[in-house]
Structures are given as structure tokens and as C-alpha cells.
């Protein structure tokens, strides 16, 4: 059997410590030790986006990312860190209002990627949206509604920033 190592990092803003085995990926770490199931392993190949996690500000596929790759002090964010009991994030609100999901299994990955997209392109055109989200698949094919959700989220973010 393989050796366990201990990593201290920040998870959705809170300092945490985890015991990690070499063969565990980030999804297993989040589900197994922190009860966070928003990142899910579907295709297992980094192609569908259901396992999206943000590590040090960059989106990664949690199914292909060994938990042991986390550095001490890393900042890890998941979909569970976006809302408060009182309020959803602007991207989440936009997904709700445009009905941009059906079964909901791929939704957390889309929401995290849309957050990244809007950080990089606050006012994206359709090509930028499609290009950025090309690695997120939805078997229910809720793509037209996701396009709408991104446009609405961009507006909400701008309104929020102006307020």
C-alpha cells in the first residue's frame, strides 16, 4: 500500500487539513473527507466538466488531478463555496432564472466555469462563451439556456459591481 501524506490548504476560504493517498484524485478527497459532492466524476477523462474544481484560481478537472498535487497553502474552491444562506451568486441566480439546467448533474461544473469565463471576459460574445465552455458537456443538452444564463450573469455581475 502507498504512503499517506498530510496537506494543509484552504477549502472555500476555511483552513483545512487532509490525509491524502497518492492514488486519490481531488474528487475523492472532496467527497470522502469533506462531504462535498458538487464535484462529481462522470467521464473520468476531463472531458465532461462535471468534476470541475478551482485550484489556486485555475479550473482543473478533479477526476484527473491527484489530490497529492495540492501544495500546502493551496486555495481550493468548489461550487459549495459560492452561495450564502441568504444569497446565491450572480451566476447561480442566472442559471435559475433562465432554467439553464435539467438533471443538474453537470450544473456545478458549468457554474464554476462560467465564473472563470466572466473573470476573464466580463462581457463575452457568443464565440467566447462557446469556446470557453467547449469542455463542459450537458447530456440533457441545455446549451441554448446556458448561453442565456451567461449573458444574464454578465449583466448581473456588472450591475453588482456598479452598485
Amino acid at each position: 500500500m502507498s504512503a499517506t501524506k498530510t496537506i494543509s490548504f484552504t477549502l472555500n476560504g476555511a483552513p483545512v487539513t487532509a490525509d491524502v493517498k497518492p492514488h486519490h484524485n481531488l474528487v475523492e478527497l472532496l467527497q470522502g473527507q469533506f462531504g462535498l459532492t458538487g464535484a462529481r466524476e462522470t467521464c473520468g477523462q476531463g472531458l465532461c466538466g462535471c468534476c470541475t474544481v478551482i485550484v489556486d484560481g485555475l479550473a482543473v478537472s478533479g477526476c484527473l488531478y491527484l489530490a497529492a498535487f495540492l501544495n500546502d497553502g493551496a486555495e481550493v474552491s468548489t461550487v459549495e463555496g459560492l452561495d450564502t444562506p441568504a444569497k446565491l451568486s450572480p451566476v447561480q441566480e442566472a442559471f435559475v432564472e433562465t432554467a439553464a439546467f435539467q438533471c443538474g448533474y453537470c450544473t456545478p461544473g458549468f457554474i464554476l466555469m462560467v465564473g472563470q469565463l466572466l473573470d476573464e471576459h466580463p462581457d463575452p460574445d457568443d464565440d467566447q462563451i462557446k469556446h470557453y465552455l467547449t469542455g463542459n458537456l450537458c447530456r440533457c443538452a441545455t446549451y441554448p439556456q446556458v448561453m442565456e444564463a451567461v449573458r444574464l450573469a454578465a449583466k448581473k455581475r456588472k450591475a453588482g459591481a456598479a452598485a
Partner: peptide, 12 residues
């Protein structure tokens, strides 16, 4: 690189 795999893979 813009059309190579996807952003999450390119990040890693």
C-alpha cells in the same frame, strides 16, 4: 492552443 482540448486540461 485555443482549440486544444479544453481549458481545464490546458491549466494542468
Amino acid at each position: 492552443l485555443k482549440t486544444l482540448s479544453n481549458i481545464r486540461v490546458r491549466n494542468v
